[in-house]
Amino acid sequence: MTPHDAFIDGLPKVELHVHIEGTLEPQMLWDKAVEQNLKLPFQSVDDIQRAYNFGNLQDFLDIYYQGMNVLRSERDFYDLTFAYLEKAHAQNVMHSEIFFDPQGHTSRGLAFETPLNGITQALADGREKLGISSGLIMCFLRHLDEADAFKTLNQALPYKAHILGVGLDSSELGHPPSKFERVFAAARDAEFRVVAHAGEEGPPDYVWEALDLLKIERLDHGNRSLEDPKLVERLVASGMGLTVCPLSNLKLCGVKDMREHPLRRMLDLGLKAGVNSDDPAYFGGYVNENYKAVTAALGLEPHHLVTLARNGIDASFIDDAEKKVLRDRLDLYATAH
């Protein structure tokens, strides 16, 4: 608990880095498995919760892909997405740009349309019933090859109206952004917005590649950028948004102690960092829990929190008129509190 918890609860905010498959709570995983008569390597919901304990990114990904097996129908993806939106709404998230991993589903024999239809219907209902605006970003799995990424991009083209952009996620080490340079060029030609995970476990060189070769518009994670002063200079000068995920960094041992988290240093250096939840079901909290954890550990004050929220709005892919509406809401809240 910090003196600023109530301020965080009411703070209008956006979320730009959340994997919808990573919002699969243990109870939903269990219920879907029972409903579909699927055998799980767990005896109870508590067993699943205990398994959500990782030593590194790969440990997490192993169970993450295993959990996807219970997502089989449009209804499953709808339920998953709407449950996330309800949690986000309760935490005063005004806008969310959500990642999904189609290759994690088509590789299991699902049609590309199955996750897409379920997710987009939930996003439409979220706008209508909860007032949350949203966008959907399709990520390429970097441990798979370029050909598979191209195949996925081609599958997405007929559904361009429902997919805001493309990203790059999964196992970072050994899979530099340069592996996907041609795919990202094709995605940009098709007028998708482009983002990429880089500098989470990978070195600053991966961030340079994401900037220079993939020509990203937003950097997901980016923590290790701080190891390279010239890279920091460039990120500050360009106003590049960084989607930072504190609880994820702690849970995956990117930082050993939240008091060592680089977020405050990022702000001090002038980087446009925002707070996000990444895979909240697996990492112990949604966006407010991330704000609270890093506030308590780093001694953040309300003005830092407002800056983080504003950075998120600025880095979002909504148009300038919508950004102004969200900034005005944030400013009104900050002034009132």
Results as ranks from 00 to 15, higher is better:
T2P: 10
H4W: 15
I8L: 04
P12E: 09
H17C: 02
V18F: 00
T23F: 05
T23A: 13
T23N: 03
Q27F: 02
W30S: 04
W30F: 07
D31S: 14
R50K: 15
A51R: 12
N53L: 09
F60H: 05
L61S: 11
I63G: 02
E74Y: 01
L80S: 07
A83M: 09
A83K: 13
E86C: 04
S96M: 02
G109W: 05
A111Y: 09
E113V: 08
P115Q: 10
I119D: 04
Q121M: 10
G126I: 01
H143I: 03
L144W: 09
L144R: 12
L144N: 13
D145C: 13
F150S: 02
K151C: 06
T152G: 02
N154W: 04
A156Y: 09
P177N: 02
S178V: 08
S178C: 06
A186H: 10
A187H: 07
D189A: 12
H197G: 12
K215Y: 02
I216D: 00
I216F: 03
H221R: 07
R224T: 14
K230V: 07
V232F: 11
V232P: 07
G239W: 00
P246R: 04
L250D: 09
G254Q: 08
V255L: 07
D257H: 12
H261I: 02
G274T: 11
D279V: 05
P280W: 04
G284Q: 01
Y286M: 01
K292I: 09
A296L: 12
L298H: 01
L300R: 08
E301I: 06
H303W: 13
R310T: 06
A315R: 06
A334K: 00
